[in-house]
Design a protein around this nucleic acid. Structure first.
Lengths: 172, 172
DNA sequence: TAAATATGTCAATATGGCTGACATAAAACC
DNA sequence: GGTTTTATGTCAGCCATATTGACATATTTA
């Protein structure tokens, strides 16, 4: 034991580096969600409601299928949460114009207001971290996270120089 | 609408950039936890068990209080999960030598084996992303995430050049 | 017309979080 | 030595969020 010099042990350093990455993600996510969770609790909502509100706000006119693909939860889990949001007037459902089976989802003004309050908090957290870390670090942050997510979701993050996300591909 | 040039609208670009950051975090965390969640399900465990196994493996001899501070859950929530892990032989509890009220937590060989299987998967995911993004990007990734986490937890991530986490401060 | 798709819904189940109250043992303090 | 604080555990009850599997309906596509 005593004769193992750490600097002579690149594998240990490597594992340490990777574990730090794992933990950074854990802590960041923990702190990233803490305040919104507290806000949501005032409405009797949880993190699942937040995700639905966020992504419907982000991609107006999303369908249930779109959300299922993003959130990776079951139809039933989404249904309960979405049903609540619709009943309580945060989200509207309108039949799809081309495919009338679809229910296009949108935020009501009330929904937009809540979305804004929630994401404002998170944007401020990220904005501060970005500002302190600098533009180059932000590039690295993006690059590493992009490499961690499933290939099929990466297209959402192309840099177009134009505001707004890449619209959801809707065949038909 | 038509006369707003995106490039003349730095605030929109700024918000878009921040939202992309939020979403990158969401997708990365989603994909980071997907496979371990599936493994854990085979044992009848969930993500909470994973976190306990991970941090006990990472900081052997942790106390219940240490875990509570890291995980930010209640004693009762931890107790249920920890109790299961102890009963099923993944974690041991031994009285603290200096403070006998404490129960120092450690992984059994069985616990270490599970920890290894779980974190191996996540380390591989991060390793690939690190490799593809390059050392400079990794620095940026660390820097931004560090800026997002609570100040008091940042000390855990000092670069000592020596393998192993900064030991848990244990007063007394 | 038949098959596939988008969505909804029901029942049952499990995990993981919460609060609040209470208990014990040990350490720390005066 | 006596009091207070700390570390931990436990009980009962509650709620949010996820699961599976089965089934139903409307609509589109082949």
């Amino acid at each position: 034991m005593a004769d193992i010099k750490p600097s002579a042990n690149p594998l240990f350093l490597r594992e340490e580096e990777l574990r730090q990455g794992m933990e950074l993600l854990f802590y960041a996510y923990r702190d990233f969600t803490a305040e919104p969770d507290a806000m949501l609790a005032q409405y009797g909502f949880g993190r699942a409601h937040h995700r639905v509100i966020y992504f419907v706000g982000r991609y107006p006119g999303s369908t249930v299928s779109d959300l299922l693909a993003i959130l990776r939860i079951t139809k039933q889990s989404l249904s309960r949460v979405l049903g609540q949001l619709v009943r309580e007037g945060f989200v509207t459902q309108t039949p799809g114009p081309r495919d009338r089976r679809q229910r296009l989802l949108n935020l009501t003004p009330k929904g937009e207001e809540l979305e804004r309050r929630l994401s404002e908090n998170q944007r401020a957290l990220i904005a501060r971290a970005y500002r302190e870390a600098g533009a180059e670090a932000v590039e690295g942050f993006r690059k590493v996270l992009l490499g961690m997510i499933e290939e099929r979701d990466r297209a959402k993050f192309e840099r177009t120089g134009y505001p707004g996300p890449v619209p959801i591909r809707r065949p038909g």
